[in-house]
């Protein structure tokens, strides 16, 4: 692996009056409204990055409440119906002795979504209020939230599989609960929130602080 050497002294596309296409990475003159190569709408920075991300984060946080309070699955066992929530499912797994699986579900369904929300809130706050800090670390944090976002869907897929697989009428039937949908909503909305955050504003912030 070789580190790419920057051409002469390090310069950003913005300093050169260029905009990088978010889809194909081509550099075009900033005055252009569409990418020269692929025709995608061209922006030097994602428009209203912080505001959009915050709005989506608030939406996701609101959806997160019913996702945890409402049942994610119903179990009809010999005519008796029991409900289980996300946390309830983790506790059941621990009681069954499946500690590793309980850990997987706990990390994917509780820690990842919460961690993602908090990290993105922190990034918006630190950039919005121009807080000095370690930019490289913040960029890595952002890339991690972007990468792990979809892994929270595990619990929703577990519900989908169990509902399709376990259907023994009169004996044992699994049915999906409303939290499965709201939780899928949380995952999708936080994924869009991560996508609307522009990591380059972290570095714009650093450059503005350095000039002071």
């Amino acid at each position: 692996m070789n580190h790419a050497e920057s051409t002469e002294k390090p310069r950003t596309a913005r300093e050169l009056g260029l905009a990088s296409c978010h889809l194909c990475l081509k550099l075009s003159a900033d005055e252009h409204h569409y990418c020269d190569r692929c025709g995608t709408a061209l922006h030097q920075r994602r428009p209203d990055s912080i505001q959009r991300t915050l709005a989506l984060l608030i939406t996701a946080s609101i959806l997160y409440i019913p996702a945890n309070v409402l049942p994610i699955m119903y179990t009809d066992y010999l005519g008796r119906t029991t409900e289980s929530t996300i946390i309830g499912g983790v506790i059941t797994l621990i009681e069954m002795g499946s500690i590793p699986i309980a850990a997987v579900i706990f990390i994917a369904s509780v820690m990842v979504p919460l961690g993602k929300l908090l990290t993105l809130f922190y990034l918006c706050w630190s950039v919005g209020y121009r807080k000095p800090g370690n930019e490289r670390q913040r960029t890595v944090l952002y890339r991690i939230t972007e990468f792990i976002g979809k892994w929270s869907m595990i619990d929703v897929f577990v519900v989908a599989v169990l509902v399709a697989l376990v259907h023994l009428t009169g004996l044992l039937v699994f049915r999906p609960g409303p939290a499965a949908l709201t939780f899928a909503g949380v995952v999708v909305v936080t994924m869009i929130a991560a996508e609307s955050f522009d990591p380059r504003v972290i570095w714009d912030n650093k450059e503005a602080l350095d000039e002071r």
């Binding site: 051409t7 950003t12 260029l18 960029t139 990591p199 380059r200 570095w203």
Partner: peptide
């Protein structure tokens, strides 16, 4: 504009921090 497109034919701006590379 033409100067830019020639100079930076194979250039890329880092998607995370906007730094230019050849």
């Amino acid at each position: 504009e033409t100067e830019i497109s020639n100079d930076h034919k194979y250039s890329i701006a880092c998607p995370s921090c906007d730094l230019i590379y050849d």
